[in-house]
Computed example of a mutant assay.
Amino acid sequence: MQRMGMMIGLNGEKVAEYKRLHAAVWPEILELISSCNIRNYTIFLREPENILFGTWEYHGTDFEADMAKMAANPKNKEWWAVCMPCQVPLETRAAGEWWAMMEEVFHLD
């Protein structure tokens, strides 16, 4: 199992829309996330800075393949098309990242 953390900005004019979308995530997206071996997925919002922090556990054996499966899914492309305009990627993110990935420096079970 691998824990992951990530951050991204949220457009201040889109906060209500983003909350509405995530209060009723499409069932197909929830099923896809699970089928891609992601568990305990949580997104937190810090207002008024409008920073999103996401965390999840990856329980699979081929992260790249699972992420490719997710990216190729037509329903997920629709989901991203409504969610991504709400987000503001951090300027300091690594090349190829949308959400900026974070290093885990402490964990306690």
Rank of each mutant, 00 (worst) to 15 (best):
V15I: 12
V105T: 14
M6T: 04
G12Q: 15
I8E: 01
V88Y: 04
T42C: 09
T61G: 07
R3L: 13
T42F: 08
C86A: 12
Q2G: 00
Y41F: 14
A71P: 05
N11K: 15
N40K: 15
K19N: 14
V25F: 03
H107Y: 11
E64S: 14
E28P: 02
K19C: 15
T92L: 12
G12Y: 11
D109M: 01
V82Y: 05
L45W: 08
C86W: 03
H59Q: 10
A68H: 10
L30V: 06
M4E: 12
M6Q: 12
P48V: 03
A65P: 00
A94F: 04
H107A: 13
E49P: 03
Q2H: 09
W26V: 01
L52V: 09
V105N: 13
E13L: 11
N50E: 12
A68W: 02
A94H: 08
F63L: 15
G12L: 12
W98K: 09
H107V: 11
W99H: 01
E17C: 08
R39L: 00
E78G: 00
N50V: 10
S35G: 00
A68D: 14
E57C: 13
V15S: 03
H107M: 06
N40H: 14
E104R: 11
N40R: 15
L21H: 02
S35W: 01
E49R: 14
T92C: 12
K69G: 01
R20W: 04
K77T: 04
L32M: 07
G5Q: 05
E64A: 15
W56I: 07
